[in-house]
Design a protein around this nucleic acid. Structure first.
Length: 485
RNA sequence: CGGGACGUAGCUCAGCUUGGUAGAGCGCUUGCUUUGGGAGCAAGAAGUCGCAGGUUCAAAUCCUGUCGUCCCGACCA
């Protein structure tokens, strides 16, 4: 094993050597999750839940700002309701978990544990909506769902996962489509400005469409191994669910019409994307806006000189007063040990306060986004200047993480014009392969069979290129192809 | 659901081929010395060897079954 492949951190293998092993070890070692005694399920530990709470807070604020309200619907769905929308049932049937017994009583009708809530929410909307005056309904719920997955990984694919699902009903197709696109853009903006993960937003191909949707949109992020990760979806359900669940209203013209509905969701998978995109050989690098701890303060004590502890407490208190999410690490351990641990856990900024700082009235600020040895990895600052300097420092860390991820995405987005090169790149997981595409399912299926890659999403043609790079037929779209998680 | 690997102390694993008193490192506890990038010494605690059968005088070790986990593929957020 070469030096380059030696672990920098105990128990975490180098990221470039084996992304899967790195990812799993990082999630466990950073204490985000713990495996549960239930197959395919994880425990979200306090630090991991802190990530989720920050995602929730940021995303929820965006939902509220666009006129949505939160509500909560039941976990269990009667089988007879679930089967009303044919495509939807067929799409989800293989992964639905069922409750068949309550206590010792065998149920006369099975109850599905929700894999998603279109059915139960649509049923309620049908009762609530009578008039065009009742529309639109703009509701979101934060909840758990269960899908009987065969193979699982923390955040990326678990049998039970946390997410939010928005469900809206509208009087017109145009309004529903506008809602679908608006929420897609909320997700894109959230990914970039909160998680610092650049994404491509676009339309899913027919084969990748949500079961029962008229059109599905997604944001897609690129992982370091060249595979894409679908990070959120937004569905225009047209009148499919409205017709199946009888969501109807009397319009201004006194005729009864079916509503147009949408649904859109982001799960804790987004956290998995964030972890994979930003992490390095020392562990996680959490973008500041998602970080449960933005700043960790580490006092450096010597025998007979514990002044740093008092100063560190003062600094911590001041920062907390300023609204910074700060943690003072007073544990009885060596500073170097603490540095390594908080590096693994990805805290954006570390403040070191030792005897020299106590004397000089300073503190050392260390950025997690920089490599050790970089010129601006550490800097000494007057203690009175810390609170003022932090907001800009945290912003700069966000910008740095985003810029690095953006650069990776751009250098691994290949606009290909040659069929052989396209197939080779698809097999090699070279990244996002951006090509003019015919849009035909049989073409996509062929690419998938040959290379494992599928369309991630598509957008309108932008140039004169009118030939599908994958098959040579006339092109109708531009598509990103990649292997996916 | 296919292919592969693995279940032994909190963690990572050795021991199994060739059956014969349960091991190491890390971690943990206590004490002292330390503390600006994962400290040192000393003492100590800790495991029904995943589970159930079978073979045997004797099973972590051999056989059968079973449950679970991880990795690689096929499907999903």
């Amino acid at each position: 094993m070469s030096d380059a492949l030696e672990p920098v951190v105990k128990e975490i293998p180098p990221k470039a050597a084996d992304l899967s092993a790195w990812y799993t070890a990082a999630c466990l070692k950073a204490e985000l999750v713990s495996y549960a005694p239930v197959r395919g399920c994880v425990v979200l530990r306090p630090y991991g839940f802190g990530l989720w709470e920050n995602l929730q807070r940021e995303l929820d604020a965006r939902f509220k700002a666009t006129g949505h309200e939160n509500a909560y619907f039941p976990l269990l769905i009667p089988e007879s309701l679930l089967t009303r929308e044919a495509e939807h049932v067929e799409g989800f049937a293989p992964e639905v978990a069922w409750v068949t017994q309550g206590g010792s009583e065998v149920l006369t009708e099975r109850l599905a544990i929700r894999p998603t809530s279109e059915v139960i929410i649509g049923t309620m909307y049908a009762r609530w909506i009578e008039s065009y005056r009742d529309l639109p309904i703009l509701i979101n719920q934060w909840c758990n769902v269960v899908r009987w997955e065969k193979a699982t990984r923390p955040f990326l694919r678990t049998m039970e996962f946390l997410w939010q699902e928005g469900h809206t009903a509208h009087a017109s197709a145009d309004e529903a489509r506008a809602e679908t696109l608006a929420m897609l853009d909320v997700y894109r903006e959230f990914a970039e400005s909160v998680a610092a993960v650049p994404v491509y937003a676009g339309v899913k191909s027919a084969s990748e469409r949500f079961p029962g949707a008229v059109e599905t949109y997604s944001i897609e992020a690129l992982m370091p191994d060249g595979r894409a990760l679908q990070s959120a979806t937004s569905h225009d359900l047209g009148q499919n669910f409205a017709k199946a669940y009888d969501i109807a209203f009397t319009d201004r013209d006194q005729t009864v019409k079916h509503a147009y509905t949408t649904s859109w969701g982001m799960s804790w998978r987004m956290l998995g994307a964030t972890i994979m995109v930003h992490g390095d050989d020392r562990g996680l690098r959490i973008p500041p806006k998602l970080a449960p701890i933005e700043v960790v303060v580490i006092p450096i004590l010597r025998a007979g000189d514990e002044r740093a502890l008092e100063v560190a407490r003062d600094v911590t208190r001041d920062l907390r007063t300023c609204g910074v999410r700060v943690r003072l690490d007073e544990r009885d351990a060596q500073p170097g040990w603490k540095y390594a641990e908080w590096d693994v856990r990805g805290v954006p900024v570390r403040i070191e306060i030792g005897p020299r700082d106590v004397d000089a009235g300073t503190a050392v600020l260390v950025r997690r986004d920089r490599a050790r040895g970089d010129a601006d990895h550490k800097r000494s600052l007057a203690r009175t200047a810390i609170a003022d300097a932090l907001p800009e420092l945290l912003s700069d860390i966000h910008r740095t993480l985003y810029a690095q991820a953006r650069a990776f995405l751009e250098t691994h987005t290949l606009r290909l014009e040659d069929r052989a090169a396209f197939y080779e790149a698809a097999r090699a997981r070279a990244g996002m392969l951006d090509i003019p595409w015919c849009g035909r399912p049989e073409c996509e299926a062929h690419v998938k069979a040959q290379t494992g890659a599928t369309t991630r999403n598509t957008r309108p043609l932008d140039g004169d290129d009118r030939t599908c790079v994958a098959c040579g037929e006339p092109a109708t779209l531009r598509a990103y192809f990649a292997q996916s998680y």
